[in-house]
Design a binder for these strands. Structure first.
Length: 424
DNA sequence: TCTGGGGTCCTAGGACCC
DNA sequence: TCTGGGGTCCTAGGACCC
């Protein structure tokens, strides 16, 4: 074991990341948008072109704020099918280089090209070829970072943006990292950056020079240890082609709504339908149900319950979620309005394992093996089959006729969903 | 004129078991 | 006689990422 760690051979990892992805697709589809500040989204900016970023517009920003910063901003978007198609096509280009591709989102992936160099040339040559193909065949700019570890490759691709290539040679890592701001490290967000800045730590070099004990006291056990390792480029993660989802969820922003039982039940019915449908589609079910309720002012609370059996039935999930939200609201007698509801299911396992001897729990009435559970399972299967043939909107549970009147279309939700059964 | 939707991981405290 | 220590699981909240 020790010998393996000490003599771990140097790998070559690429991180490929499409630039301002949704915005670039819009500029590709509509040439009149090229060279102009473009934001994809509406109430919230999902992606901003580099022309828009120059005005300070960025992802996650409220739409009115973006327009305020950039009066000429073109707000467009909604071509979610094209985003999916072009994201998939980019990943296909990467898979022509090596099967060792770990996709981490619609527009970004790691590649382990350690074994590809005698086929295709140096890592820099491979990276340049990838960029050229994506540019020529798909019409999109993509940045690539090359390094000996995943984490450093990701930092390198961020430094390469927009539309660039950065290669960090083995042995040159420390010199590359030292002057960079800590915020470029994976896992350093606003809160951590502030804590570090309060200690006078601004660069990765300064972070690496800080004692592990100090970092652990400042940031907690895990984060302190991890960041210290990243700052000194001690990252042994390998490219993983078969990661499985650990939870499945859905949420809906509601505007400001009275938290009446009817409003809550309707919204939860819609969310439960999405979540349970995806679970069944992947042949999975989950033992833990978590709900989240957000109030005006962005404060949010969560409530969860874990059972001895796993849930995948739409109506059962909806009932459990309703009970959880009801108790959460009872704990908040001063809140009368809500702005968001969410359902998430975790502790996933294969669906449909019959469990006979079950402990009696308060929520026992939800148990899938009961007569009612069997009826629900049959209903779910019938609905799933109709939808397979005729599409999602062909049939709905009575409670799920809810259409979120604000928020995003279902196409976007599907785009953001992570694959439940991504196997090698 | 307070802001989307999909996730992952960590922490702290408590229950419970041996 | 009221006292140890370790482990696991669960819950709620928070930070972070795309």
């Amino acid at each position: 074991m020790i010998a393996t760690m000490a003599h771990r051979p140097a790998a070559t990892i690429l991180h490929a990341d499409l630039d301002a992805f949704y915005a670039s697709v819009e500029q590709l589809l509509d040439p009149s948008l090229r060279g102009r500040p473009v934001a994809v989204g509406g109430g919230v900016v999902l992606a901003a072109s580099y022309e828009a970023k120059a005005y300070g517009v960025s992802g996650g920003m409220a739409g009115w704020r973006a327009r305020q910063l950039c009066p000429d901003l073109v707000i467009t978007g909604g071509h979610f099918r094209d985003y999916q198609r072009l994201g998939d096509a980019t990943i296909d280009v990467l898979r022509d280089v090596t099967p060792l591709v770990e996709r981490i989102s619609i527009d970004e992936a790691f590649l382990d090209v350690t074994g590809s160099v005698h086929l295709f040339g140096s890592p820099a040559t491979i990276a340049a070829a990838i960029r050229e193909r994506v540019r020529d065949e798909l019409g999109l700019p993509i940045s690539v970072g090359v390094a000996t570890t995943k984490h450093l490759a990701k930092v390198a691709s961020q430094v390469a943006k927009p539309d660039g290539l950065v290669v960090v040679e083995a042995g040159d890592e420390a010199r590359f990292l030292e002057p960079l701001p800590v915020g470029l490290l994976w896992g350093v967000g606003p809160a951590t950056r502030t804590k570090l800045a309060d200690r006078g730590i601004h660069t990765i070099g300064e972070l690496g020079a800080t004692s592990p004990d100090v970092l652990r006291r400042l940031l907690g056990q895990a984060a302190g240890t991890k960041l210290g390792a990243l700052a000194t480029n001690d990252d042994a993660r390998h490219v993983d082609t078969g990661r499985r989802a650990r939870s499945v969820g859905a949420q809906s922003a509601l505007g400001r709504r009275q938290a009446t039982a009817d409003e809550v039940r309707t919204a939860l019915g819609y969310l439960a339908d999405r979540v349970a449908g995806r679970l069944r589609g992947a042949g999975q079910a989950g033992r833990t149900v978590t709900v989240r309720v957000r109030f005006p002012g962005m404060r949010a609370i969560t409530r969860s319950a874990t059972f001895a059996w796993a849930v995948s039935s739409t109506l059962t999930l909806a009932e459990i979620a309703f009970d959880l939200v009801a108790t959460a609201l009872e704990d908040e007698p001063n809140e009368h309005e809500i702005t968001l509801l969410a359902i998430s299911v975790s502790h996933l396992e294969p669906e449909g394992e019959l469990q006979l001897e079950l402990p009696v729990e308060p929520a026992e009435r939800h148990r899938p093996g009961s007569p009612r559970g069997a009826a629900r399972s049959a209903t779910d299967q019938a609905v799933d089959r109709v939808r397979e043939r005729f599409g999602r909107s062909a049939v709905a549970y009575a409670r799920t006729a809810f259409r979120p009147d604000r928020g995003v279309p279902d196409d976007f939700r599907e785009l953001a969903e992570h694959d439940l059964d991504r196997t090698a």
